[in-house]
Design a binder for these strands. Sequence first.
DNA 1: TATTGTTATACTCTATAACTATA
DNA 2: TATAGTTATAGAGTATAACAATA
Lengths: 152, 152
Amino acid sequence: MPTVASPSPAEDALETGATASIVGYRLRRAQLSVFQKFHAVFEELKLRPAEYSVLVLIADNPGRKQTEIAEALGIKRANFVTLVHGLEERGLVERVPSANDRRANALHLTRAGEAFLAHARAVHTAMEDELVARLGGAQARDRLLALLDRLT
Amino acid sequence: MPTVASPSPAEDALETGATASIVGYRLRRAQLSVFQKFHAVFEELKLRPAEYSVLVLIADNPGRKQTEIAEALGIKRANFVTLVHGLEERGLVERVPSANDRRANALHLTRAGEAFLAHARAVHTAMEDELVARLGGAQARDRLLALLDRLT
DNA sequence: TATTGTTATACTCTATAACTATA
DNA sequence: TATAGTTATAGAGTATAACAATA
């Protein structure tokens, strides 16, 4: 008697035990899964994860310069230029030349940007609620975030 | 009296509370951090995360065809070609034409590949042990993996 | 007809160097 | 000299389409 029971066809599965126990590997798979969900949900809004985080950070820190926002999100300032440019072209973000430092651009949301973000935040909250439910509740979410913190 | 105490210079930090509570965002930062560590540790072995997982999977499932290994790791078979080709050129992997299906290549590690992987596994175990210690022990690691499973 | 490995190709994300205008 | 924003560019990683050989 080889195993307890294997009723289904089952083909012949691969031995994946060694990879399955790797923290980095499992972390990557979970992150890809969550981001795929994000892309599916935000397809209608044409908004990528990085763009959403930029809008949120500008809304919560109006008037900061590009370098500050970029650095806080781990985005190189060279790559941040294109990202902000796209948001500006869509009328969501304004680059206002700074009064005291004429090298810097102060970032603000436009009226349209604030309305758009309000909608995006609602969509995101619904997605996040679903994730938290899958995790088993708010406490489970907090335990996950605490564990992730130790890896960062 | 504005706040309880803020002795250090502190510049003026950004408000990041909204992004900090996003599961996907924290997941991505943690994954990037772990992968950066991987790259640093495996620089001397010239081995990327995907290549390491391929070697492990071939070692644990010798004789399987490319498509099977690629699919198990979520790698498109078109992209898998280049990856395996690199490992073959380094003398770590063999592509043996399958006896029963002449379309397929059966994958095996070479002698050199097995020796190399033994070393890589040791290096990886050391890295993993350090991660587990940071998490707070094996139980904490298992709790993390269980939570990540629910997101995948 | 379907599958295996392959090539070609394109798109995103990320990283570095170098320029300008200001400080 | 150093910093802010910018441009150009190159390298990964990933995605699809199409082909030849074989099933």
